[in-house]
Nucleic acid binder design. Structure first.
Lengths: 141, 141
DNA sequence: CCTTGCCCTGACGCCGACGTCAAGGCGTAC
DNA sequence: GTACGCCTTGACGTCGGCGTCAGGGCAAGG
């Protein structure tokens, strides 16, 4: 099949396929007209790439999976190099999730603090006698 | 103080300060020589920006905090616009963390599956007579 | 005098994964 | 003939947040 058909069947674009070829990830044979010629195996390789990319893998990280398939293995993750990428990715994800949760906690605490400060000021404004005007906390002279 | 000193005191670079100025985030007065002239308040604004950026806020998202401080409020998050950014960021973080955990679960499952497949093949190779070659996949108990 | 050290502006480089033109070739259909 | 649709290569644009020159100024110190 030609590039347009492969792109459509994989839910991507011709530009992407040419890019993958330039990166050496998905080389294509050529027909008599110089047009790229792909087969079902290429579709399988491409789907492997896209699946991993959907998970946030870099293009380079998909390479071991593609080479594993091309070597004749039934799955892209049938090779040790692919498993190593999985493990590295899991470690990355765990680290990132940990950082994000820490940030989330900090930002959440900041929001809570800021809201308390706001409510305190609002309460003082609503009930001017509630706190002495000279109270230092408000800062409002 | 001049740009070099401010950069050093805030733990950033002069390039960054010029960039913030160009973005209209941290305008600077000029002295007789045309050199940027900052004061302690600018340092406070800058620290607010850097803190938020360390949390992963975009530069534009820090603007409400900076303007809030510049308007005379004691904290950058003393204004409703800042609180809105906090809330938006929390929602973003929650969504992102959720996605990442889903990806983590999927990748973890893929790794486990691939490792089982590998171990199964290794066991078959180690004990060639242990299972009949015609044994159906996955049915080896 | 020259060097050192700070400052200035302007502009290109970088990262990743493509999008989007520009300009042209070839085959088929009208 | 010519319009259409697919293909080709090449090259620039995108996004954010700067890094890194290039080229020049101004003041103090030796």
């Amino acid at each position: 099949m030609r590039i347009g058909e492969l792109a459509e069947r994989a839910g991507t674009t011709t530009r992407t396929l040419r890019y993958y070829e330039k990166r050496g990830l998905l080389p294509a044979r050529r027909d008599a007209h110089g047009h790229r010629d792909y087969d079902e195996r290429d579709l399988k390789l491409l789907r492997q790439i896209r699946t991993l990319r959907d998970f946030g893998f870099d293009l380079e990280e998909t390479r071991p999976f593609v080479e594993c398939l091309r070597a004749g293995h039934p799955e892209g993750d049938s090779c040790p190099a692919s498993l190593a990428v999985y493990r590295r990715k899991l470690a990355e994800l765990d680290a990132l999730i940990g950082e994000l949760r820490a940030v989330r906690a900090t930002v959440g605490a900041q929001l809570a603090r800021a809201e308390r400060a706001r409510d305190r000021l609002a309460a003082e404004a609503a009930v001017p006698g509630g706190l002495a005007p000279g109270c230092e906390l408000g800062g409002n002279q």
